[in-house]
Amino acid sequence: MDLNALYQEIILDHYKNPLHAGLREPYGAEVRHVNPTCGDEVTLRVQLAESADGPVVHDVSYDAVGCSISQASASVMADLLIGKPVAEAMSVHEDFLALMQGKGQVVPDEERLEDGVAFAGVAKFPARVKCALLAWMAWKDATAQVTTPLTEEEVR
């Protein structure tokens, strides 16, 4: 069993020194996601900004409790998505999801996923895929809440 394929140096670095950690103001939406099987938790905030080319991910801030994989994944994701147009960030999200669900058969595009390619090995450990996806799913959820107008019921 190749532990080093799972625990790449990049992952351990992000785990020890997470980027963009902590909850910041201002934010457009805040979500809290948990992994019910293990109890890992993340509270994540997304702030978007308008630009000539449409909405841009202005900030992603988070407070996470969990294993090295889930912590490092939040760090890599925040660093990767901050500054990207929302449409591009969503497409990167899809790439990362495909990589994680690819059972180790998907070859990641380093140009697009940058440090995210370090998680390629996680896809071979089915029990850990949910750890790697926790923050990403939270980001997608929070971003959808900012970009989707509230329904009448929610406004009330």
């Binding site: 069993m1 532990l3 890992d40 969990g66 294993c67 090295s68």
Partner: peptide, 12 residues
């Protein structure tokens, strides 16, 4: 070390 990581390394 988080318990998941402990358990993963022990499993190896």
């Amino acid at each position: 070390v988080h318990p998941h990581d402990v358990s993963q390394v022990l499993d190896s």
